[in-house]
Design a protein around this nucleic acid. Structure first.
Length: 192
DNA sequence: GGATCGATCGGCT
DNA sequence: GCCGATCGATCCG
């Protein structure tokens, strides 16, 4: 399996978010592989994006978003949840893609033990997949493209355009327009 | 299946 | 001091 290289992340964030659909997120935990296909992403683009953590400019938390592409931005929110993002675009421009949902592939037993919930809600939300894969502060800033990385993305078949659904981002509350309605959420609807 | 609400704490205008 | 890129329990229908 070939791993996505830095050039993949060093592109416009909307393209990266779109192209991450169907790719395989891998977390190496205690020597075991946990993985899942990425089925929902969301783009946060630039300092002007009032929904982005970069809206206040460079701060200790947002600093990673201003850094080079291909690194993880992991943050803590709501007093209890961790969220996984991938930094995109050129160093100095703050942007990232939030990984919102996975279709579990490898290590499902481990994920079940970590979640204590039914399989259908194992990894169908950003904080859920972080809990399932043991992603927290310790992975903030890690390089997804490093040889020794324990978190990275492997190339998988790309998703046909007909399967991609675009919509507004989730959970933005009182964020002002036009940012509230930007169709920067990308997903592959559940098959049935 | 949908609406509502509490938990819980770090970051920040 | 306020509020959040959420989750899960609970209450309803």
């Amino acid at each position: 399996m070939t791993r996505l290289r830095r050039q993949f992340y060093d592109r416009p964030t909307l393209e990266v978010a779109r192209d991450l659909l169907g790719q395989r997120l891998v977390r190496v935990l205690d020597g075991h592989r946990l993985s899942g296909l990425i089925v929902e992403t969301e783009a946060y683009v630039g300092q002007e994006d009032l929904a982005s953590h970069a809206r206040f400019g460079r701060t200790p938390r947002s600093e990673i978003m201003f850094g080079p592409p291909g690194h993880a931005y992991v943050y803590f929110t709501y007093g209890m949840h961790w969220m996984l993002n991938f930094v995109t675009e050129v160093k100095g421009y703050p942007a990232a893609v939030l990984i919102r949902a996975l279709q579990p592939m490898e290590g499902v037993e481990v994920m079940r033990r970590r979640r204590h919930h039914p399989d259908h809600i194992l990894t169908n939300g950003p904080a859920k997949l972080a809990q399932a894969m043991n992603i927290d502060k310790g992975l903030n800033g890690c390089d997804l493209c490093a040889r020794e990385a324990v978190l990275f993305v492997e190339r998988a078949p790309s998703v046909p355009e007909a399967e991609v659904v675009r919509g507004p981002r989730v959970g933005l509350g009182e964020t002002r327009e036009p940012w509230l309605s930007k169709p920067w959420n990308f997903k592959i609807p559940k098959r049935r």
